[in-house]
């Protein structure tokens, strides 16, 4: 790869790193896991950079790679080990109450992965239905139905906590 191409990659990655880490963190709820997802994503991005860098909407591709890495991790069972015991709890952070976030995060983890991704992308990353459809490689109708199913599942898991602690 030429130095010029490397420079383009570096510029892109450094510019997008905060956003990628935030999306990964919102998806995984775990800082280390988020960094693993970003590491995998930017590694694959470098491998594909000569092809990807020339297309428009590079962000769409990168977000797709990131979400796919998240779903792959879920499929591979990264959470299987955790769920046999106790899921790793995020350390307390400023803003809101820790209990709220802990309960909500635990509930979100129990929502099916694809629905979880839709909820995070739409309501925490403020992506439009059309953008989420492109990122997830599905129709807008699927995004809407996954949103509905995901919210229903989340509210069912949270039960009485909706409108209470939350």
């Amino acid at each position: 790869m030429s130095d010029e191409s490397d420079a383009g990659y570096l510029e892109y990655v450094h510019g997008r790193m905060p956003a990628l880490r935030r999306i990964a963190f919102l998806l995984s709820g775990d800082s280390d896991q988020a960094d693993d997802l970003v590491q995998e994503t930017i590694t694959k991005l470098y491998a594909k950079w000569p092809r990807i860098s020339r297309v428009e909407h590079v962000d769409n591709y990168v977000h797709t790679m990131l979400v796919r890495a998240f779903l792959d991790e879920k499929r591979r069972g990264w959470w299987r080990v955790s769920l046999r015991g106790a899921p790793p709890e995020p350390p307390p952070r400023p803003g809101g109450t820790t209990e709220e976030r802990t309960v909500l995060r635990a509930a979100l983890r129990r929502v099916p992965a694809r629905q979880q991704a839709v909820l995070v992308l739409r309501f925490l990353c403020d992506q439009s239905v059309a953008d989420v459809a492109r990122i997830l490689d599905c129709s807008e109708g699927t995004v809407k139905s996954q949103t509905s199913h995901g919210l229903t599942a989340l509210r069912r898991i949270l039960g009485d906590r909706v409108g209470g602690a939350l």
Binding site: R21, R22, A24, F25, L26, G29, S31, A34, D35, P90, P91, R93, P94, G95, G96, T97, E100, R101, L104, R105, L108, L119, V120, F123, L124, L151, L154, R155, V162, L166
Partner: peptide, 12 residues
Amino acid sequence: LLLRPLAEELPG
């Protein structure tokens, strides 16, 4: 509104 608390979290 439901998910907003999570948006306040930041990675380490």
